[in-house]
Design a protein around this nucleic acid. Structure first.
Lengths: 263, 263
DNA sequence: TCCCTTGTCGTACGTTGTACGGAATTTGGT
DNA sequence: ACCAAATTCCGTACAACGTACGACAAGGGA
């Protein structure tokens, strides 16, 4: 990397690379007790995970390096490897523990109220821990206790409304995919602002006049018309919060028509 | 990195870091002509971009390093920097050029047929160039000619159906967010399979028995019931294609109820 | 012809994850 | 009580990354 990290690179992570048995022990805290021989351990996996989460929250997943985590805990870098087999497993556990902080309210009312609450709670989670969106966890998710609990909570929102099990799973993952996508836009905007010291407004005010020079409004009349209105309204290329509430209502309307058709 | 790149890290990129004027010139091909003095240039920006796209298609965005691109073109690494100010700008141009390969069919019929075609064409694009999903382009997208043309094409699907400009933009970005999310799941599955030499099925058959040991079916009865059915059906944690078509139909139902309410 | 601009690219630096091996520490066996 | 085995801790080293810097070569304008 160049000095002062001017480079535009972030890191993504996916897990499931190491020993599956070891991974699951880490995730579920079922590691065998301390061995009898040798020095006492000065750290715990959970303390390491917390340090990683704090760095990721403050500076993004790219700032979470083994050296940074070790420094924060006042130990040598390589000491971490006696607790965690690799960075991939560490990120997996960070992922599950952060998921565990999601609010899982038991909402009164019908499926729509419940599913709205599920979506909002996931949205809040991603606002608090935006780096979760950089962990590749759609296929092969870390199968930790909190991820499982979250899956169950989501499903209960649409239980007993006349959908098949398959439809329940599909509805829940459809809403999840949508929330993640919208949260990702918000997270990117925040990360860009943090890393460049420039808000989206400022960015746009630089690029808008440059775009006007090359953009042919006669060739793309619809984009010109809509873009003008959208640009004025959002004061930025994409307003995440507006998009989230609007799209969520639309999606739930879609789910409603599915549920009605089943009755 | 460890030898043989066993590490579980992928790279993400976001642009808009360098000189905005230079960025736009690169994107729109409006760079000033060749200077009269000095040696002839042996390459073009477009050749470099093509090489980058080929590597990204075959091995993912993480494999696109300046050294790899230069090697493929038979030049020294640093020569690339006379064409492109940094890797961030190179990725921005790769992004726009890949977007340009999307099919933008002019579909007969109503908005639903058109919007379905838009979604499917975007889905196909992400299947051909999965690395596009790793370019952070939701806020501050590269404002290149192909991205603009794509935006116009998407909007035309819902033009003249009674929605406001703001609603048109929101509907289009809602569908886009959804397609990207589903495509991301598919891309992650493919990337995992490529990097680990293990299909999702194989992965699941390793983890399922381990999960069974720690999972408490009495505590999470809904997850147990739905998970069993979903697991049997998908033969994997998440089937992207099924999810895509199902969710798209649901979302379009939601859009339909919005459009009806406007008539 | 000479000079000055421009393109090419070898070298070097600071960053990353982590393999390796030596030192220090604690305990079980005797 | 003492030794060896087991275990933790961690300094060093390596290959990869993006790219700053500067030396060298190429070629048109004077």
């Amino acid at each position: 990397m160049a000095k002062k990290d001017e480079s535009a690179a972030e890191t993504r992570h996916y897990g499931g690379r190491g020993d599956p048995v070891r991974s699951m022990e880490l995730l579920w805290g079922t590691s065998p007790g301390p061995r009898s021989r040798g020095p006492k351990q000065g750290l715990t996996v959970e303390r390491i995970v917390q340090a990683g989460i704090e760095i990721a929250d403050a500076e993004g997943l790219a700032a979470v390096s083994m050296r940074r985590v070790a420094d924060r805990l006042g130990v040598g870098t390589m000491s971490l490897y006696t607790y965690v087999p690799s960075k991939a497993e560490l990120v997996d556990v960070m992922f599950d523990r952060a998921i565990g902080t999601a609010a899982r309210p038991e909402v009164e009312g019908g499926w729509r109220e419940k599913l709205t609450a599920v979506a909002r709670s996931e949205w809040d989670l991603y606002r608090r821990h935006p780096w979760l969106l950089q962990v590749m966890a759609m296929s092969r998710p870390p199968l930790g206790p909190n991820s499982i609990a979250g899956y169950d909570h989501q499903l209960r929102a649409v239980d007993g409304v006349g959908l098949t099990e398959l439809e329940m799973d599909s509805v829940v993952s459809m809403v999840g995919v949508y929330v993640q996508g919208t949260a990702r836009a918000a997270a990117e905007a925040a990360a860009s602002a943090r890393d460049t010291g420039q808000t989206d407004d400022e960015w746009w005010s630089v690029y808008a006049p440059l775009l006007e020079k090359v953009f042919d409004a006669d060739k793309y009349p619809v984009a010109a018309r809509v873009g003008a209105v959208a640009g004025e309204t959002y004061q930025s290329a994409y307003d995440a919060t507006h998009g989230f509430e609007f799209g969520l209502a639309r999606i739930l309307d879609g789910v409603e028509s599915l549920i009605s058709s089943r009755r």
